[in-house]
């Protein structure tokens, strides 16, 4: 396994990092869509997140990553406790449908003549992340399939005489480049948050990016040791935040503000409001706050709403700016950018 670039060593890209942390703290916020320039460390960041997250408890021997005490039926005998790293599963372009949803176990069928189910990528991603690079290039029939499973949280396989259903709840993380073609609106809506990343333009930042990349590539072990403390600190933050989330109430005030904001920028449907509140709660938890305040909402508004605006082709491509303006109008102030 090649060494993985540490999350805390990634220079800049604060919005993308925050969105991923939110998804890691509260899965129900939904997936993250990352659009942007080439070479901005999109996939590096996602893989770094995987390495950062603390291991999760699972039923020992379960191939579907079932959590203990959820009535797992995939193992024989009594449940045993085990831990497993949070899965971040890559869905590579060119993957065939049978590997995505799962299919007949070839080895057993050919050698032993037995019909057995070999779980696919969706099973492997359960309780973790499913990462799709260049999501706009994925074949349409796979996209439809993914949307279906992402919505129901369950994968149903009926093929080759097999009939299997298993849980598949995952956070969809997709990246893409808008110059290569647009995403269908139905797909856009399925992502809880969307962020836009740009190549850093500030010279000093660029130099730091190049240096770290170079240091890492020349000696990954030394480099990772340098950031081990930072990684541990961030990991502890995430664990603490996860525990705090259920205790943070959804106040009427926060709901009202979210509803107002959504109607101001003109988003369709309730999904926007829900995501806004949940994401704000995750940020509050990350900061150790006991309730959601305006600052939290404000911070997540662009990423929760920018892809939900009713799009007219001639509106400014940077719909994030539109959201920020609406935020500034509602909450007052200049709408200054907040960073982690």
């Amino acid at each position: 396994m090649p060494a993985i670039f540490p999350f805390s060593a990634i220079v800049g890209q604060d919005e993308m990092k925050l969105a991923l942390l939110i998804a890691a703290i509260d899965q129900s916020v939904g997936g993250v869509l990352v659009f942007g320039d080439r070479g901005t460390g999109k996939s590096t960041t996602v893989r770094a997140l995987a390495a950062l997250l603390p291991p999760m408890p699972v039923v020992g021997g379960c191939r579907f990553n079932c959590a203990p005490g959820t009535g797992c039926t995939h193992t024989q005998g009594a449940e045993t406790a085990a831990t497993a790293p949070v899965p971040v599963v890559d869905l590579p372009l060119g993957a065939t449908e049978d590997r995505v949803v799962g299919a007949l176990d070839l080895e057993r069928a050919l050698v032993h003549g037995q019909k057995a189910f070999e779980p696919g990528l969706l099973a492997r991603a359960h309780r973790g992340f499913l990462y799709i690079d260049e999501v706009n290039l994925l074949e349409d029939h796979l996209v439809d399939l993914l949307l279906d499973v992402a919505a129901s949280g369950e994968n149903v396989v009926e093929r080759e005489g097999l009939s299997v259903r298993h849980p598949a709840k995952f956070v969809l993380v997709g990246t893409g480049n808008p110059e290569e073609g647009e995403l269908r609106p139905q797909l856009l809506d399925r992502f809880g948050m969307s962020v836009e990343v740009r190549t850093p333009e500030d010279l000093k930042t660029r130099i730091e990016v190049v240096r770290r990349r170079d240091d890492f590539e020349r000696n990954p072990d030394v480099f990772n040791a340098r950031f081990a403390d930072d990684e541990q600190r961030l990991r502890n933050h995430i664990v603490a935040a996860r525990e705090r989330v259920p205790g943070i109430p959804t106040s009427d005030h926060a709901l009202e503000r979210a509803a107002q904001l959504c109607s101001d920028v003109g988003t369709d449907g309730l999904r926007g409001e829900l995501t806004l509140v949940r994401a704000a709660r995750a940020v509050a938890a990350l900061e150790g706050a006991s309730e959601i305040d305006d600052a939290h909402l404000r911070r997540v508004a662009p990423m929760a709403l920018r892809h939900r605006l009713r799009r007219t082709p001639l509106s400014s491509p940077d719909s994030g700016a539109r959201v920020e303006r609406a935020v500034a109008d509602l909450f007052g102030g200049s709408g200054e950018r907040l960073v982690i």
Partner: peptide, 25 residues
Amino acid sequence: DGGRTARIVRTIDYGRVEMERDGLS
């Protein structure tokens, strides 16, 4: 074309091929 480019580019970035095809992984 775009699809093949994306597959090649991804392999370059990762330094490995991830084959999830025909029941093989």
